[in-house]
């Protein structure tokens, strides 16, 4: 009996691997790495202003009672260009958007904003990706929805497309209640 079982063990092991591989092939699982900070208060950070015309980004200033978006972006990031119109739309809808500019230079960001639109109230300078790492973000662009008490309630990974806008507005409305 024991021998009988062991003889079939390799086939069983292969069947398991086969099953998982087939599943992964036909129904690829979600491989995005979500931030573990969702649901937790925004980590303490005080980012210097990148541009002269507006403040940097400081966690302490967030307890305004009004939910907002925190957009992790960079002027050298191509999908950031793609999401710029959606951010403008969100701004037009009255959403306050702050930004963390990852590894960027003021001239480059100024050029980027004048070309693709400027939705940001504050822009924090993150020259060594330290803020990005503290947020649990693994790429640009990413957008965090932050409630009025400074808690992260949602993370959007990748560029915001037109179809994502309602979802983000809903999350903001939810956070406001």
């Amino acid at each position: 009996m024991k021998r009988g079982l062991l003889i079939w063990a390799p086939l069983l092991a292969f069947a398991v691997v086969f099953g998982f591989a087939a599943r992964e092939l036909w129904k690829p699982s979600d491989r995005t790495i979500a931030s573990g900070m969702v649901g937790k208060p925004l980590p303490q950070m005080a980012l210097k202003p990148l541009l002269l015309d507006r403040p940097g980004f400081t966690t302490a200033e967030l307890a305004t009672g009004k939910p907002r978006l925190l957009n992790v972006f960079a002027s050298w990031c191509i999908p950031c260009i793609a999401e710029a119109p959606q951010l403008m739309k969100l701004k037009a809808a009255g959403v306050e958007i702050d930004a963390v500019a990852v590894r960027d230079k003021p001239e480059a960001v100024e050029a980027f904003l004048s070309r693709y639109g400027d939705p940001y109230a504050r822009i924090g300078d993150d020259p060594r990706s330290a803020a990005q790492l503290a947020l649990g973000s693994s790429g640009v662009p990413e957008t965090f929805v932050i409630d009025g008490k400074g808690r992260i309630v949602k993370q959007h990974i990748g560029d915001i497309r037109e179809e994502d806008v309602p979802e983000i507005l809903a999350a903001l409305a939810e956070a406001a209640r």
Binding site: A74, W76, I78, V102, R103, D104, K105, P127, G139
Partner: peptide
Amino acid sequence: VPVLADSALPPA
């Protein structure tokens, strides 16, 4: 799909 570009800043 994601385009990995490099920034212009020197490494830390």
